[in-house]
Write a protein that binds this DNA or RNA. Structure first.
Lengths: 219, 219, 219, 219
DNA sequence: GATGAATGAGACTTCATTCAT
DNA sequence: TATGAATGAAGTCTCATTCAT
């Protein structure tokens, strides 16, 4: 299934980026792990350097500041946490054109669950930094706005035209989807990572929650 | 409506607590404001002291440590963010015994919206600290467990017996409600506090989202 | 035996002093105990106030400063750690005039052991403060000088005239006695207070050590 | 005489230690001097940094805590204040096997006087910290125990077998020697450093004091 | 280029002392 | 008079960043 390809994004994304040397990628990976465990403010650049097996001097040569390490490390999440729904749909509808909300939600949920599984740490850091880091928030809002217009909002509008989704304001729909998915991620990866999770069951509940609310009123 | 009384909780709660002097309340209020704006780790005790118009010495005499300031300031949220649903219901069912989910949700949503409005800053701080502050997380989980057993889970179970709510596992129901409400709070007070919000509309959407999912399957 | 009377000096000394109220004596007693356990510098005036069951304000009214509390509390030791040998001898020689070193040492050693037993804490504090507290050291040296002249040195000189003690310089003799006795006190009360001590045995060894060295060369 | 070589120990010891940079040695030397003059508790890390011509940051990078500076600075004293008697004897008895207590005491006293001369400050600090610093006391007791068993107690027992020293319990003998030597050091370097001292005379008195007491009873 | 020693600003915290009540 | 809340100076320690090697 095409969505699987999204899986190897991250930290694969970091791994693949051409402009970064392996040492620099080590820094980003170590950073995300430490930030996720202790928080950004409670992690020292010294800790990062040790975890990434290199000197602080070298680290600062490349990344200039601690804040910049965070920014670069979170870039993949900033760009991918809102999925490029349009692209995903296009891939899948090549063979099987979209005619119902249910199939869309199944693909969407699976896609996001895989993204979350692969990027737990970075997502946790991203959310917490979003609260206080004005720069990050602004950068994300800018990116998100574009993503919405070219993909998400467009897709939703199209679905609404075909009466495949409820006729609520886009922001309402978006927040609802985001809330349900984010709630799952928080529960699953942040609050109770050690509970005994059954991902298939979770997926079914998520789809059900989304479908019940988002299906068109008199469908 | 009885739920209105819950409104004057916080920072009203801080204001009213008998054991605290006005100076101590000033510290808590200033702390929450600063923490909400800059984050706990980025706020110095010096800043708090200045904002609360007193010396750091005095502050530490009363609160012993910065961590303790946070703990005391968040106590109201820890204890009230999960509402005492049972108590609320009892008040309202004195006159009008509960017979449908819809009325329950209206009261519930209004109650939480008012709580959020009154405690925006503290809620924001609470969420962000929940991510990395083990002690806080543990304290909250302990408190929450009790709250669940005596109130929330009991209420849900009772509703399920009367076929007034969907027959999903309690944790699933709880997470769904929490996700939807928390998503609204995040959007409303953290991410886009300056947008032009219509609280009545928001309440209607929230109730709709909750009702569509939570209503019993063949009701 | 007359030396027994010296026993009830301290903290009896503090208890008896006329100019001090009970509350003030409580402060001195608490101070000595805390200083002995933690050191002067590591003991806060707050701790003392709590241990003495009164307010810091009152304490400072009477004692003016922490340093002064120490000075007043140590006064008994300053004045009595060098025994008034002449007076002791006079008492005992009323019945049994002194004719040999051995009897003198027995009385002397017993006297000092009892003093040490009764004033362990204060002695410990006294020694440690002697090292760095210039004022205390000067006060002690002044007091000691007088005590020497009127009592100790006079006694030794008299004993030397009668060929009852070795003909070494007085300072040498004094240091020797002080070393042997202080070494015992340190071992007994500071370093190994929990060992199983037999005070009679210790007394015999002390007397032996003193006698072997201090007896006149061809006695 | 071989014991002279022990002289260049300290602060020579600090100077020579291979693992320490010059900057780190500066810290230790400055610390000991300041601690000896003012006491550990009354000396600020700022004072040490200034005296050692570096920043507090650098100091803490290497020593981690003020307590650790003390510990490292006192290490030479901890390990050498109880002399390795056995080793000393072996050196000297290569040519001239030990047959009397007198020669042993001469060597011993000279050795300790030289050690004291070279380490006055550290010894003073060591003694005062021994009173309240539990960790230091424990470390010293541990080290001392080993030193005793392999060297001091063995030597004394051997001397007793050959009837070269009095048949007292070892702890008694050890405390007596320690008292006499420590009494001298305290008098000489702490209480009256400015008096006009004649070290040869002092040595003779010390040897006499030790010999009179320690010689076998019917030798 | 790569390193890590050095820095100094600033964080949290303690405490002897004062003073309004 | 007795109190203890309030203070601010000073203490220990951390850390992002720089720079000489």
């Amino acid at each position: 299934m095409s969505v699987n390809k999204i899986l190897d994004q991250f930290p694969a994304t970091i791994q693949a980026t051409k402009e970064l040397t392996q040492k620099q990628k080590d820094v980003l990976i170590a950073s995300i792990q430490l930030f996720a465990k202790q928080g950004y403010a409670n992690t020292s650049t010294h800790q990062i350097a040790v975890a990434a097996h290199q000197s602080e001097g070298t680290m600062f040569k490349h990344f200039k500041s601690k804040a910049n390490i965070l920014r670069v490390a979170l870039e993949p999440v900033i760009f991918q946490i809102i999925p490029d729904v349009a692209a995903e749909l296009k891939k899948d509808t090549l063979s099987k054109p979209f005619t119902n909300l249910h199939d869309f939600l199944i693909i969407f949920v699976q896609n996001r669950m895989e993204f979350a599984e692969a990027n737990q740490d970075a997502i946790k850091v991203f959310f917490s930094e979003l609260l206080y880091n004005e720069d990050l928030r602004q950068e994300f809002i800018d990116v998100a706005r574009k993503q919405f217009i070219v993909s998400f909002e467009g897709t939703v509008t199209k679905l609404q035209k075909h009466n495949l989704i409820i006729d609520w304001p886009f922001t309402m729909i978006f927040r609802y989807i985001a809330s349900v998915v984010a709630g799952y991620i928080l529960d699953r990866y942040v609050l109770f990572p050690n509970r005994d999770w059954n991902d298939d069951d979770e997926a079914k509940y998520l789809v059900a929650e989304l479908e019940k609310v988002l299906q068109p009123e008199q469908a």
